[in-house]
């Protein structure tokens, strides 16, 4: 129980030395390490926070970009769809128009062909009818009939209207050539004289006459001078009928509704 003062002094010194050694080898490095690690942790936390902020920002940016891209894509897609729809409609319309125009052309062509055929048939028929008529009347024509024709011509000369008479007179007055009288058969002397008398009476003059035969007239007589022509013949009737047929056809086709 006694205190050894040398030991006490030695232990105080020992303790102080231990304090110094432990400060050097334990507390200082450990505290330093802890401080450094805490600094590192703080730095890391700050870094992590910064990175998080950055990441959030980038995420936001990416999101916006994505949305913009989606919008753009949708717009482009819509536009493309609309354009293709328009194009489709246009093509369909074009095809429809083409089909319609082709159909119209076809209709027109077939109508034209039909009309041509009809026209040809009508023309042929007409020609046949006139040929038959001409043949039949030519066969029937005789001196008797000629005489009757000359009588009809003379009658007609007598029955000329004032207007016609004036034209006739004007045509003959300015003419020094003989008046040409053509007939299908040779006219007898009596009828030639009757014609001359009738003309003389109308003109109140005695012009030169020249009588010619022309079988194409088909029992008829034609009197002509300076372009003025006065005639009575079956051929004349037929010609006038033939001329009037196309006019009639035209009138009929105009009054009828157009074919569809």
């Amino acid at each position: 129980m006694k205190i050894d003062w040398f030991t006490v002094i030695a232990q105080v010194l020992n303790f102080l030395i231990l304090v110094g050694l432990l400060w050097r080898f334990l507390y200082k490095p450990i505290l330093k390490a802890i401080d450094e690690r805490e600094k590192k942790i703080v730095a890391r936390l700050a870094d992590a926070e910064a990175k998080k902020t950055e990441a959030n920002k980038e995420q936001e940016e990416f999101k916006q970009k994505n949305e913009a891209f989606d919008k753009e894509r949708k717009a482009l897609l819509d536009k493309a769809v609309a354009e293709s729809e328009d194009e489709r409609k246009k093509l369909l319309e074009q095809a429809r128009k083409d089909a319609a125009s082709l159909t119209a052309k076809l209709d027109a062509a077939s109508k034209e062909a039909q009309e041509n055929l009809n026209h040809e048939i009508a023309q042929k028929t007409r020609q046949q009818v006139f040929a038959i008529t001409r043949k039949a009347l030519t066969d029937l024509a005789s001196a008797g009939l000629e005489e009757q024709s000359a009588n009809m011509f003379i009658g007609r000369l007598h029955g000329l209207k004032e207007e016609e008479k004036r034209q006739f007179v004007d045509a003959f007055k300015s003419n020094s050539n003989p008046i040409l009288v053509r007939s299908a058969f040779d006219l007898p002397e009596k009828q030639q004289n009757e014609i001359k008398d009738a003309v003389n009476r109308i003109l109140s003059a005695a012009p030169q006459f020249q009588f010619k035969t022309n079988p194409e007239l088909i029992s008829g007589i034609e009197l002509s001078a300076n372009g003025y022509k006065l005639a009575w013949s079956i051929s004349e009737y037929l010609n006038s009928l033939e001329k009037s047929i196309p006019v009639m056809e035209k009138e009929i086709s105009e009054t009828l509704p157009p074919k569809k």
Binding site: T7, I17, L18, I30
Partner: peptide, 29 residues
């Protein structure tokens, strides 16, 4: 005496242990 010898032994133990451990201190996580 034994007190001093034991004290030196304890001192040596503490200092050596600390020195060995703190020689390779890391500041990582």
């Amino acid at each position: 005496n034994l007190t001093l010898v034991t004290t030196w032994g304890i001192m040596l133990l503490l200092v050596l242990t600390s020195a060995i451990i703190t020689r390779k201190l890391k500041t990582d996580m």
